[in-house]
Each structure stands twice: as structure tokens, then as C-alpha cells.
Design a protein around this nucleic acid. Structure first.
Lengths: 126, 126
DNA sequence: CTTGACCTTGACGTTGACGTCAAGGACTAG
DNA sequence: CTAGTCCTTGACGTCAACGTCAAGGTCAAG
């Protein structure tokens, strides 16, 4: 299939696909007229990338998964590099959650100070 | 005081101060030679901005607080606009926390699938 | 009078994942 | 032959809060 169809089926823009290729995450064959040519495995690959992006991974984070799939594995999760990324991202997320809780507490404290009785509970008194 | 001293005392760069001015958050008088001139109230103002930025506010979010201080209030919290921003940011933070928990769950699930028994607990088995 | 520290404005660079033209080639249907 | 749809590469724009020059003015000290 060509880039337009892959884009439709994967739910992304053609620009995104070209960007993934530029970043070395997607390698397209070319037909004689220069058009990019993709197959089902590419669709799967793009789906994997999208799935990872939606949970906050960067394209760099996604790279090991892509390479894992390319290496012939049925899933991008199947390689130790991928597992390592999962662990790292999990730690990052936990750190972000901690940071957000800290900020939440500070903001809530300021709000309470500025407006006593204003926020008895979270989102309570609108 | 001049911009260099204010920057040192507030713990920010002179570039940041000029940027705040450009955004209309900081209004400096000028001496005859064109140098910016600040006083203690400006220091307080910059401190307020910094404090808000560190808990994730944008400069736009900080604007009401600055205006509140400029209006003569002892605290930037003292105005209803500020309180409203606090509430909005609190809601935003809560939303972000929810998003992160969702992501965490998904990543953890993938990790468990990829590597059973790998993450018995968070950051447990390194 | 000349360092040297301080100040000025202006303007491009940074980060990530694309969006959005622009200019032009390829191919199909009528 | 032509319209219409798809494709190509290239390159600037987006968002926030500055960082980092560049070129030049100001002032106190020696």
C-alpha cells in the first residue's frame, strides 16, 4: 500500500509517517516512480509507535520496540531493551506523579490561605 | 537597583527579567542612561512569579497575581482572579495526575506481559 | 585614557512531533 | 488532452520560557 492508505488505516497523517521515516523508525521500499510502498508489517509497526506515544513515550523511547519488531519478534515487547525502556518510563511516570502531588499540595495550600473554606474538598464547591 | 542585582537576588537570569517585562509582567523605570531601575516591590513580584512557575504555572497564569500585587495588595493571592486561577490549576493538576495514573497502569500492564514477574512491585526488582 | 564590568536592543537557537504550505512529478478516468 | 487525486522533497511555523550570541553604549577605577 502507499502512504495515504497506511496513514488512513493507522489513523495518522502522512506527514507523521514521513517524520517517522526521517527518524529512522520506518523504512519504506520505493516503487519505480518513487512512491513509498508499505505492507502489513509496517502497519503493525506504526500502530506500535502510536500506542507508545499515547502513553507518553517519545519516538526515541519507541525505537527499541520498533527494532524488536523488525528483528522478527511478534511483539515489540519481546526484547530486553524494550523491557528496560518500560522500567525507565515507569520510573519517570512515578517521578512525575510525585512532582504533581507536591505541586497539588502547594497550590491547595495557597488556595486555602487565599480563600479559607474555599476548597473544602477537591472540586467540591464549584 | 539595576537588573543585575535584581537577577542575583531573585535567583533568575537578566534575560528572564527582560522577558517578563516584554510579557508585561514587570514594569521597570529607566535611569537617564537607559538602565532599568528596580525596587524591593519588584523583587517581591519576581519572587511571586518564580514561585508560581515552579509549581507549573505559565506566565499567563501568573499575570493575575502580578496585577494583584501591583494593585497594592500585600499578597498576589488576595484577589478573586488569583483564586480562580488556583482553582483552575488545581483542576488541571488533578487531570494530569489522572492521566499519569492511567498511563502508569498501561505501562505496568505491558511490562508485566513482556516480562512476567519482572515488576512485582514498583522499582522493586532492579 | 583604557580596561573591565555593567547595561542596551535585536535576533536566532532550543525541544518534540508534527502542521502547513509550495512547487512540481505520476497516474487514472473520461 | 485535461482534470483530479495522489505522490515527492523542502522548508518554515508551532508552543514556552528563556539561552546565547552580536554589536555597541555607560561608567567607575587606575
Amino acid at each position: 500500500m502507499r502512504i495515504g492508505e497506511l496513514a488512513r488505516r493507522a489513523g495518522v497523517s502522512t506527514r507523521a509517517l514521513r517524520y517517522y521515516e526521517q527518524q529512522g523508525l520506518l523504512a519504506a521500499r520505493r516503487t519505480s516512480n518513487g512512491y513509498r510502498q508499505y505492507d502489513e508489517s509496517d502497519l503493525k509497526l506504526v500502530a506500535e509507535i502510536r500506542s507508545l506515544l499515547t502513553v507518553g513515550f517519545t519516538l526515541e523511547d519507541a525505537r527499541p520496540f520498533v527494532e524488536c519488531l523488525r528483528a522478527g519478534n511478534g511483539s515489540g515487547n519481546a526484547c530486553p531493551e524494550s523491557v528496560e525502556v518500560y522500567r525507565r518510563k515507569l520510573a519517570e511516570i512515578d517521578e512525575q506523579i510525585r512532582t504533581l502531588f507536591g505541586r497539588r499540595a502547594e497550590v491547595a495550600a495557597q488556595l486555602a490561605e487565599a480563600c479559607p473554606g474555599c476548597a473544602l474538598r477537591t472540586g467540591g464547591t464549584t
